[in-house]
Design a protein around this nucleic acid. Sequence first.
DNA 1: AGCTAAGTGGACACCTGCGTCCACATAGGC
DNA 2: GCCTATGTGGACGCAGGTGTCCACTTAGCT
Lengths: 192, 192
Amino acid sequence: MTEQLPQKLRSDAEDNRDRILESARVLFAREGLTVPMRAIARHAGVGPATLYRRFPTKQLLATEAFAEQIRACQAIVDEGLATPDPWQGFCSVIERICELHLQNRGFTDAFLATYPDAVDIAESRELTLKSVATLARRAKAHGRLRKDFELADLMIMLTAHRGLHVSDPATRTTASRRFATLVVQAFAAEHA
Amino acid sequence: MTEQLPQKLRSDAEDNRDRILESARVLFAREGLTVPMRAIARHAGVGPATLYRRFPTKQLLATEAFAEQIRACQAIVDEGLATPDPWQGFCSVIERICELHLQNRGFTDAFLATYPDAVDIAESRELTLKSVATLARRAKAHGRLRKDFELADLMIMLTAHRGLHVSDPATRTTASRRFATLVVQAFAAEHA
DNA sequence: AGCTAAGTGGACACCTGCGTCCACATAGGC
DNA sequence: GCCTATGTGGACGCAGGTGTCCACTTAGCT
């Protein structure tokens, strides 16, 4: 599951590293990438030095923390590809990705930002997008997806979706669901 | 045009006040409400004390700076109401409001934030929204606007639209236009 | 149990934001 | 031209972020 580093860590260091990652996941999800490194250290019950020793930059920490989300994202798209009706698959991808981004504010930031140094994220992002493109091509052929749809449209809508993170969690959830519904109709071909 | 204060200012103070407002407009539009007060003071060529003396809080400054935009916003909706075809009027309102918010990042913040103390903005906001509601009712009756449209949907989309402000100006412009087009389709009734 | 290298947390120095205070400058009536 | 109320900019103290250093602790081999 977790990659083994060349240098094996001391047991207490290993524990601390795990706790830091766990805290980072919680706080990134709740507050987004803007959460202070200090806050993550405090939440994990370690000093700042420990955090910086393990993860010199926030991007490095984020990349590790979001490994699971990245896999989830790919899984969602794969399931969409596996759905018999490509349009239904496409719709479920939109809805579920919105849901994922809703629950994880930091991941949205990470996914859209394309940090130059967070290679892992950028790479799997491209891979996932390639799958979405395939799905979109099928849904177009099927006639239900508007002909002029482009991948950029999806990125625009995901970027916009992030804007919803300003309000409180309850409002945000309602807003996100409604947003997904509207986006699906926006992408639908004109005539039924 | 500008309201006369009960206390008349000294001529140099008046000049400074004007320059501060002008700088605030430029910087709020470009950077959003997050721009530091100091930056506005520097841009206007005055010290921080001068700025704080005229506008004790950022909200007060914003309210004055955006007076013109608020009027523009109302004008857009009024023109939409005056359009013979209510659906076309509704669409043009969406497109033009997106355009307005695109050019003025700070105004978007101000419009959506509902500061407790910025009464002027909140008030005209409600007024504008009431007009939009009227327009929406007509467009629904006309059959082109989806029956389950609510005012909240528009707020969701405007909030989302703000998310587009992360990218560079050129990309942002393209994205905003495309976003407006998609939103219009999202709001359209199912059958042609 | 003792030793040592790896690991740690608190202190530190730096930056940038905020709002306020006060000694000086100056507009504008005389 | 002078005098004074009004207006001003720079300096100040505070809060909260960043990354780094170093004297102490401790895991784990012997």
